[in-house]
C-alpha cells in the first residue's frame, strides 16, 4: 500500500514561503515524477513527504492515516538520496542490512532479503566491499538495495541519477522503471531532467516556484500543456512561441508550435524564412529558421538526410492540429 495525499501543505523557511498551500494525491503503485527548474521546491516537497522537514501548514496522509506528526521512520517510506548517503564504514552487506537491523528483523530473513536484493541489483559480487570501493552506478544500486529490503509503502528518489554519466543514466533509468514494474510499489521521483520525467513517469507533477503548474501523464502534458511554462518545459527541443500579429490570426496572445509539428518545403508554405544554425543528430536534423516578422527564430525538425544549408530560403507550414494557443495570462485556450 502506498497511497499518499497532501492536503493544503505549505512550507516556509523563516519568512520565505517556499511552497504555497498545495494539494496532491498519489495513487498506490503509481510512478510519480516531480519535475521543475532548479530551486522550485521539488526536494523540499519530497522531504516533507518523507518527514525530514516539518510542514508549516496542512496534512500529509499515508494510506488514509494522518502522518503529519509521524517521524520519518514510522512512515514506512524509503528514500534514495542524490549523494546516495551510504554509510562509508560499513560493507555493502551491512549497509543493506542496516534498516532491517533497526527494525529487528530475524537474521535468516535479513540474509534472504539481502541475497534477493543483491541478485536483482547485480550486487552479489560486491557485498563485502566498502562503498568507497564501488563505482557511482554500483553505489546507486546499493542505495536502492537499502531502500528495497525494507519493503516500504513507497520509494522516494531525489535526483538519484544526476551524478552518473549519460550512458549509465539511461541504463539506470531502465532499471528503475523495471524495478517499479516488478515491485508495483508507489515511487516518487524528483528530477529536473524532463527526459527522465517523460520516459519513466505514470504521472508528472510540474512545479514552478513551489506551485504545481500541471499534473498529468507524460502524453497529456505533451499534447495539452495548460500554460506557457509547462509547454516550454516539456518536450525537447523546446516548443516555439510566437506573439503578436501571427498569434492574433489564431485569436490568441501567444501561439506555440513544437519543432516536430512544422512541415518544411522548398517551394511554398505559410511562412518564409532563412536557415540558420543546424544540429544533425543522424535520425533528425534541427534547424534554426529566422522567419520574417517573428521576434525569435523558430526551431524546426526535418529528416536526417535533408539537404539544407546555412542561408537557404525555405518555407514552413505549421500543423494546425498541433498548434497550442495561450491567452495573455499564459493559460491555454481551448
Amino acid at each position: 500500500m502506498g497511497h499518499i495525499q497532501l492536503k493544503g501543505v505549505e512550507k516556509c523557511f523563516g519568512d520565505v514561503m517556499v511552497i504555497p498551500p498545495l494539494d496532491l494525491e498519489i495513487e498506490d503503485g503509481e510512478f510519480v515524477v516531480f519535475v521543475g527548474p532548479s530551486g522550485c521546491g521539488k526536494s523540499t516537497l519530497l522531504r516533507l513527504i518523507a518527514g525530514l522537514e516539518d510542514v508549516t501548514e496542512g496534512t500529509v496522509e499515508i494510506d488514509g492515516h494522518d502522518a503529519t506528526e509521524l517521524p520519518p521512520a514510522k512512515r514506512g517510506l524509503a528514500m534514495v538520496f542524490q549523494s546516495y548517503a551510504l554509510y562509508p564504514h560499513m560493507s555493502v552487506r551491512r549497509n543493506i542490512a542496516f534498516p532491517m537491523k533497526m527494525a529487528r528483523i530475524p537474521q535468516e530473513e535479513q540474509e534472504r532479503r539481502i541475497s534477493e536484493a543483491a541478485r536483482v541489483l547485480n550486487l552479489t559480487d560486491y557485498l563485502d566491499r566498502r562503498p568507497g570501493q564501488l563505482s557511482g552506478g554500483q553505489r546507486q544500486r546499493v542505495a536502492i538495495g537499502r531502500a528495497i529490503v525494507r519493503e516500504p509503502a513507497a520509494f522516494l528518489f531525489d535526483e538519484p541519477l544526476s551524478n552518473l554519466d549519460a550512458a549509465l543514466r539511461v541504463g539506470m533509468r531502465l532499471e528503475i522503471s523495471e524495478l517499479h514494474k516488478r515491485l508495483a510499489t508507489t515511487m516518487i521521483y524528483v528530477t529536473h531532467d524532463q527526459v527522465e520525467a517523460m520516459t519513466m513517469a505514470d504521472k508528472i507533477v510540474v512545479l514552478q516556484a513551489g506551485v504545481i503548474e500541471q499534473v498529468g501523464s507524460p502524453l497529456e502534458l505533451y499534447r495539452a500543456p495548460q500554460n506557457l511554462f509547462v509547454a516550454g518545459f516539456i518536450g525537447s527541443p523546446k516548443m516555439n512561441f510566437v506573439d503578436g500579429t501571427e498569434a492574433a490570426k489564431h485569436n490568441a496572445h501567444t501561439i506555440g508550435i513544437r519543432p516536430e509539428h512544422i512541415d518544411v518545403s522548398a517551394e511554398s508554405g505559410e511562412w518564409t524564412g532563412i536557415v540558420g544554425v543546424s544540429e544533425h543528430l543522424g535520425s533528425d536534423t534541427y534547424f534554426r529558421v529566422s522567419v520574417d516578422g517573428f521576434a525569435e527564430p523558430l526551431t524546426v525538425r526535418a529528416g536526417g538526410e535533408v539537404d539544407l544549408h546555412y542561408g537557404d530560403t525555405i518555407h514552413l507550414t505549421p500543423n494546425l492540429d498541433q498548434l497550442h494557443r495561450f491567452d495573455a495570462a499564459a493559460t491555454r485556450l481551448a
Partner: peptide, 25 residues
C-alpha cells in the same frame, strides 16, 4: 554528512542508534 544522518533516520535508527552506528564510527 547530514544526508547520512537523514538516511539513517529514514532507516529507522533512533537517536542512540544514530550515535552508535553513524556518529561514533
Amino acid at each position: 554528512d547530514q544526508e547520512q544522518l537523514e538516511a539513517s533516520e529514514m532507516d529507522g535508527a533512533g537517536s542512540f542508534s544514530r550515535f552508535l552506528f553513524i556518529m561514533l564510527p
